[in-house]
Design a protein around this nucleic acid. Structure first.
Length: 423
RNA sequence: GCGGUCGUAGCUCAGCUGGUAGAGCACAGGUUUGUGGCACCUGGUGUCGCGGGUUCAAUCCCCGUCGAUCGCCCCA
């Protein structure tokens, strides 16, 4: 039999204690921030019937990037590539009995079969925050944008670290379909080219557009749309979403968030189910201008589950890109172990006494590690040192008899005698 | 999916134009028996990613494959 590999499956990660501490520290900010807005946590199975992705997730994801199989009962199932359809399913299931608006979040692991690269793995964890059934869609959008920015601030990031770019699906659709009079089947290709505009040469840009039926005059209109940004939609107030963006930008300024936000006409996002607001948060670092996470409004998804239709808006924030961001900007580094006291044993015979003492201290909230073998004292000190445990209690004959313990603080070398209640 | 780079002890790597391998760190033990961080001593493993080929001989050359990484495509 050949040696089994210790490597995790391609594009996935093992989480050793140090990795786990980092991940939990990231998640802790998520839980804290999101709960401070009244969001409630949910979870769901990692496997879903594949149908729930067929209708609304993008064609690309379903046909090429989904892990799917047929189970023993001939059911076609998929490992979730994203959480949104699941959340929509759960909302639809309990819609009537749940007080509106619904604010739910989750931190699921999601899977995509794709080429692993920087910031992209096959399995990652993704904070999902969604609001359903708000009386005012605009207010729900505002709160979600506020939350997205607050999350970043929760990690200590400021406007110099990231920027949130927002747009509205209706504007792009209106420009492509109305102003440029392009047939709808050309929209995705043109949107892709727009996305590349900054990276490619102007001639190449023009040539690619021409290939999609966007000639000289139409290209100039498109450039106006992309370059003039807010001024453009001020002129074209008839476009769906134009006044929405202007008003939202105004509100964001009143909330004091305008430093973090910009209107960017080229924000599109890949999912087919978006119907209104779309946004993406980018790393502001010059050599790392990558999308960190994003979201948008998807009003038609819940209705696909047959119950009542409801408005919905949400975003997903992945742990891989977030970790890159936090480490690049040194906003969150390695997280130390958190044990308060190490009890060293002079003899294994004192172990019951040690465990008893440890239980008492744990009852007071201390984290205590008891030595699991009376090796040389020096060894036990080294163990505590390596595990970054700040204090060591020495348990020998004298201590057991007197109930007064020698406790040494490793950082200072200071050693004092304490009763159990004083530790 | 395409191209570049890489894959040697637990980790980071060295190995000069092919002659079956080393360093640092880490780890374990010790420098005599109730005290760590320093220093010194001692110790071990590597099918040199995997499979095949060329060669008297391959870690080093060739092909394939798996994985990592960077760029592109795609995507978010």
């Amino acid at each position: 039999m050949t040696q089994l590999s210790t490597q995790p499956y391609k594009g996935t990660r093992d989480f050793f204690p140090a990795d786990m501490r980092f991940r939990e520290a990231m998640f802790a900010v998520m839980h804290k921030t999101v709960q401070s807005y009244g969001f409630e946590q949910i979870d769901a199975p990692i496997i879903e019937p594949i149908d729930i992705y067929l209708a609304k997730t993008s064609e690309e994801i379903v046909s090429q990037q989904i892990y799917s199989f047929t189970d023993r009962g001939e059911r076609k199932v998929a490992i979730r590539p994203e959480m949104t359809p699941t959340v929509a399913r759960m909302v639809a299931a309990r819609f009537q009995e749940t007080p509106k608006p619904i604010r739910w979040y989750s931190i699921p692991n999601v899977w995509r079969y794709e080429q692993p690269g920087k910031g992209r793995l096959r399995e990652h964890w993704q904070l999902n925050c969604d609001i359903f059934g708000a009386p005012s869609e605009k207010l729900a959008d505002l709160e979600l944008l506020n939350l997205a920015i607050d999350l970043m601030r929760g990690y200590g990031a400021s406007e110099s670290h990231f920027k949130l770019y927002l747009s509205h699906r209706g504007i792009l659709n209106g420009v492509l379909g109305g102003e440029l009079k392009l047939p709808q089947e050309k929209w995705p290709a043109v949107a892709r080219i727009m996305d590349k505009r900054a990276k490619i040469k102007p001639e190449a840009y023009a040539a690619m557009l021409a290939a999609e039926g966007v000639g000289e005059d139409k290209r100039q209109e498109l450039d106006l749309f992309l370059n003039e940004k807010l001024d453009y939609i001020k002129k074209k107030s008839h476009l769906e979403g134009a006044s929405y963006i202007l008003e939202t930008m105004q509100s964001l300024e009143e909330i004091g968030l305008s430093a973090y936000v910009e209107y960017d006409p080229s924000v599109v996002r890949g999912f087919d189910y978006y119907t209104g607001l779309v946004f993406e948060v980018f790393d502001a670092h010059p050599d790392n201008r990558r999308s960190l996470f994003g979201g948008g409004r998807y009003n038609n998804l819940v209705g696909a589950f047959g119950k009542e239709s409801t408005n919905a808006v949400g975003f997903g924030m992945g742990d891989v890109t977030l970790e890159d961001f936090l480490r690049t900007h040194k906003l969150l580094g390695d997280v130390p172990r958190k044990v308060d006291l190490y009890i060293a044993l002079m003899s294994d015979d004192f172990a019951p006494h040690a465990m008893n003492l440890a239980n008492t201290l744990r009852g007071r909230g201390l984290r205590v590690e008891v030595s699991l073998g009376a090796t040389k004292l020096g060894k036990q000190f080294q163990e505590a040192e390596k595990k970054a445990i700040p204090r060591v209690l020495i348990l020998g004959e004298d201590e057991v008899k007197s109930g007064v313990y020698s406790v040494k603080t490793l950082a200072t070398g200071e050693q004092v005698k304490l009763k159990a209640t004083e530790i």
